[in-house]
């Protein structure tokens, strides 16, 4: 299998911006809506080249979700852009009634998710959004791992029919997947093959999992790393197949321990193949101001925390 390294870092939100622009060229029905964060969402290129299909909504996210729902009537494919906090918690009822329950083909694109938003602090660092979105019936939830995958996920959403939530972030982050790496909504991406433990990760933490795996290999531990870029619909088969082989799992996400990827994996295993699980996630607390690196360390989301979790889960597996 490929050894994952990187030569360049870029923010995942830029992957969204490039993907949306490509979609704009390809499909005249794609429209963009933004709530006063065009630059932050990297929607400028789309706005510049397709001004008649770009709608500035101002600081009014609830209205943006409603307008997006309405725009689907007549065949448009709206991509809404704002921060993850304002894309979910602030407008949950609008998404629930006008988009999800009404089965509207709206793509909710959310930047600045999680702790790595950094200095703005906890008001903006949403860590509950995956949970909220995955609880909505019919909602597709995607959390890509780097710039290239965010671009591919955005393009894939142009073809996908139905409500979807796309979560990405602000910090400059290693680009470790190839621009042409296959990406299919709902299909987990096995990054590294292993036999002792499965590390399931999403978003920025896929890179941390890859770093952790390299250190584990040096210690003679063979870890399988699976990128669960689609939280919903979850690739249950891939999760079960891997854990049947390895016998234990660690989940990694830039999200609360409640409601996110960890819960998804634990639910699948509890129902179909009980096995020890450890979770690397924010432990039921809000974030704070700081640099992304400082925050990931303080809140226990670094490669060293993943290694710790692997050691713990391996002990539990041995006890059996």
């Amino acid at each position: 299998m490929t050894k994952f390294t990187f030569t360049e870092k870029k923010d995942t939100r830029s992957g969204f911006g490039v993907g949306l622009h490509e979609l704009g060229k390809k499909n005249p029905n794609v429209v963009g809506l933004c709530a006063d964060l065009t630059g932050s969402l990297k929607m400028d290129a789309f706005k510049k080249d397709f001004p008649e299909r770009f709608f500035q909504v101002g600081i009014a996210e609830a209205n943006m979700m409603g307008i997006a729902a309405g725009m689907t009537i007549g065949g448009k494919i709206p991509f809404t852009g704002t921060f993850a906090n304002f894309s979910t918690g602030r407008v949950y009822d609008q998404i629930r009634q006008s988009i999800a329950y009404s089965d509207k083909n709206v793509k909710i694109c959310a930047s600045h998710a999680g702790l790595t938003l950094g200095e703005d602090g906890a008001t903006h660092q949403i860590l509950e959004d995956i949970g909220m979105m995955r609880m909505l019936p019919g909602m597709t939830v995607i959390v890509p791992c780097d710039y290239n995958q965010t671009r591919l996920a955005t393009i894939a959403l142009g073809e996908h029919v139905g409500p979807a939530y796309l979560r990405f972030g602000r910090p400059s982050w290693p680009i470790f997947t190839a621009p042409d790496r296959p990406f299919t909504i709902g299909k987990a991406d096995k990054m590294i093959e292993g036999k002792d433990v499965t590390i399931f990760a999403c978003g920025h933490l896929v890179w941390n999992a890859i770093e952790a795996e390299a250190k584990l290999t040096e210690r003679g531990i063979s870890a399988e790393v699976i990128n669960i870029h689609t939280i919903k619909p979850l690739d249950v088969e891939a999760i079960l197949a891997s854990v049947q082989k390895t016998g234990c799992a660690v989940t990694c996400e830039e999200h609360q321990i409640n409601g996110g990827l960890g819960d998804c994996v634990a639910q699948v295993l509890a129902r179909f193949n009980p096995a020890p699980v450890e979770m690397v996630a924010v432990n039921d607390s809000f974030g704070e101001s700081g640099t992304p690196t400082q925050l990931l360390k303080k809140y226990g989301l670094g490669p060293e925390n993943i290694i710790e979790a692997v050691d713990k889960v391996l002990k539990r597996k041995k006890k059996g």
Binding site: A62, M71, I73
Partner: peptide, 13 residues
């Protein structure tokens, strides 16, 4: 409170 926004979207389309 949601219907006006939705109808604006439909009118825009």
């Amino acid at each position: 409170g949601q219907g006006l926004s939705v109808s604006i979207g439909a009118a825009q389309t």
